[in-house]
Design a protein around this nucleic acid. Structure first.
Lengths: 345, 345
DNA sequence: ATTCAGAATTGCAACGTTGCATAACATGTG
DNA sequence: CACATGTTATGCAACGTTGCAATTCTGAAT
């Protein structure tokens, strides 16, 4: 092929120029506009021309310059992940990023990550993205029922997807773990094990998730006819404090015989405290936790858990977001992830 | 101020235009070139002019358009983190990202993350970045002694920094955990506890880190006059297999009375196995692990550990990289992190 | 030959920025 | 007053891309 002369000549060093539309135009003898049009699938072009361009582009290894495209079209081809600082779910960040990475593989999208240091600054982050059009779409996690970030992006009509539902009237894309099912499954399981008093240990009350779990928990315990108890506001506690709670709990005369824990970090500390006081979890009382990492099953192979697949969530969130960016209706971009029970014995 | 007319007029909706150099030029009555020059600190400009421009820019909230700058200068103002898929160090990814995020706060840099799914594809990732100038600099982790990625970036004279040293003759920026000190500290500690046979449990032999630890381990055990034993190639093992190793070890008649473990995941599984067989770690044998997350101290509050601060590593790596991008010599951009012993009792 | 319609291709301008060569201005000198 | 000398400000082109209006080409009908 005639392209040899060029593709063969670009070794290392100062000689190798970047391959642009211009390069392809020169190689094919067509004009810049034609090449550009062709590459974007212009239907008014002769099939022969389109083939010629496609071939040259491939031979030369052409990849559109992001800056050029962005300047001209405003499209950044960037997806931004706002990374919450919480570490309740072990390995959450890594899996989420891997999931997103998996979904954008082979697409023109890149991923930029914006770590969040303080929750109350999250509005600034979104404001910055909105003002500077620094991404085509945003993924947020740890969503609240009246999340300011969601409100801002709805108002600005900016593409985003939330990991978690909201209470806003205007529909928006989301993907969420089905916390209600989680709570129901857990309560039923504990009831079937003969538990009479079940305690829900739960953290971050700023998330929608929190409310969904609490509501479903009350409903499920009422239906099963067992006593319900809630230990809330545990998100700020240190592992040591959580451990202490386990110890104190074990000492109670009227202690719960079933526990549901929504966080891996807290499960570890809590179980640590319970065990230290001599109780055997799985015999003296039962515990079900929400599992996101592979660590806890290693640690407590005998404990029941209900799994949320964060990698899959990342992939799904990205799929929804990309569709949204392409203009799909928000209503059609709302999906739920079914909790996956892992019952032992 | 006269800028009111503009800044006051940009409410929501279709009316609000982006603030560009042009906007500032119109407001100040200066030319585009002058404004651009002024904002970049052109010394040939009158102080009065510079003040006027700076003032207007601030009032209007001007932020340079990344696409424009990138197209013109080639500077992306992006730092890329190649994220290794390994999860040996729990919470590694999150802390690294937070650390980088902390370091770029308030700078013009953004962070893009490129998740790696297969180690042997890592060269492709770097090739892509190099060919498409998609970032100004790269951070890599899990560096090997003759890391191909490092070789490629040295050859291309492309700014990067590695978490981990290499054996290349050409100097390059790095920040590394002082594994030799880690091994020495751990062996000394175990020796002081009276251990006679110490086993090193270690994984990923493709990293420089691996070799450094092994070498230092041999030296330290020889100096202390205690028996050395190495369990290598543990990186591919599942938690269950690692647990099994713990069980088998406990059953040995000549079992080690001291263990050094370089990975949190493996520590959890190993200790799980040892405990299951009835041994009490800290009494029947001693164990020291490399700690990066806050999880293990919660789990095993009585175990000795040596800490690597991954957040700080991320911050330092970024600091080095930014200096490198600005043209600093590689020789001056090589730093080590001192292991932080956490001895219990 | 001339006209025309449709198909196929192209020139031009613009996105926002910067580097360079040049222009305008101010000041001092012979 | 003309001229040189610095000081300060500007015009122009270019980075790579795309949308649109305009142009050229092709072949058939008059």
């Amino acid at each position: 092929m005639s392209s040899k002369t060029i593709s063969g000549g670009n070794g290392r060093g100062a000689g190798s120029q970047r391959v642009t539309l211009r390069t392809i135009a020169e190689v094919t003898g067509l004009s810049l506009s034609t090449v550009s049009l062709s590459l974007r699938g212009g239907t008014t072009l002769k099939q022969e021309t389109r083939d010629k361009v496609a071939e040259a582009a491939k031979a030369l290894g052409y990849i559109p310059d992001r800056a050029g495209v962005r300047l001209r079209t405003g499209k950044t081809n960037v997806i931004a992940l706002v990374l919450d600082g919480a570490e309740d779910s072990i390995d959450f960040a890594r899996q989420m990023i891997q999931g997103i990475g998996h979904a954008i593989r082979g697409t023109r999208y890149h991923l930029t990550v914006i770590p969040e240091f303080e929750r109350n600054l999250s509005a600034d982050t979104i404001r910055y993205i909105l003002d500077n059009r620094t991404a085509d779409g945003v993924v947020i996690t740890h969503t609240g029922p009246r999340d300011r970030r969601v409100q801002m992006m709805i108002d600005a009509d900016f593409p985003f997807v939330s990991h978690g539902r909201t209470e806003f009237y205007t529909p928006h894309p989301y993907h969420d773990f089905h916390s209600e099912v989680f709570a129901a499954l857990a309560v039923e399981r504990l009831a079937s094990k003969g538990c009479k008093q079940v305690m829900l240990v739960i953290g971050d009350d700023s998330t929608t998730n929190y409310h969904n779990i609490v509501t479903a928990f009350h409903r499920a315990t009422a239906r099963a006819g067992i006593e319900a108890r809630i230990l809330e506001g545990t998100q700020g506690l240190t592992p040591a404090e959580m451990r202490k709670i386990g110890l104190d709990l074990a000492a109670e005369t009227q202690r719960p015989d079933g526990i549901i824990c929504d966080s891996e970090m807290r499960t570890i500390a809590l179980v640590g405290g319970l065990q230290e006081s001599g109780l055997v979890v799985g015999r003296d009382l039962h515990l079900i936790y929400k599992q996101t990492s592979g660590i806890l099953p290693t640690l407590f192979p005998d404990l029941d858990s209900i799994r949320e697949d964060v990698f899959a969530a990342g992939t799904e969130l990205t799929r929804l977001l990309m569709k949204r960016i392409e203009g799909a209706e928000a209503e059609s971009l709302q999906t739920m992830a079914e909790p996956q029970p892992h019952w032992r014995s």
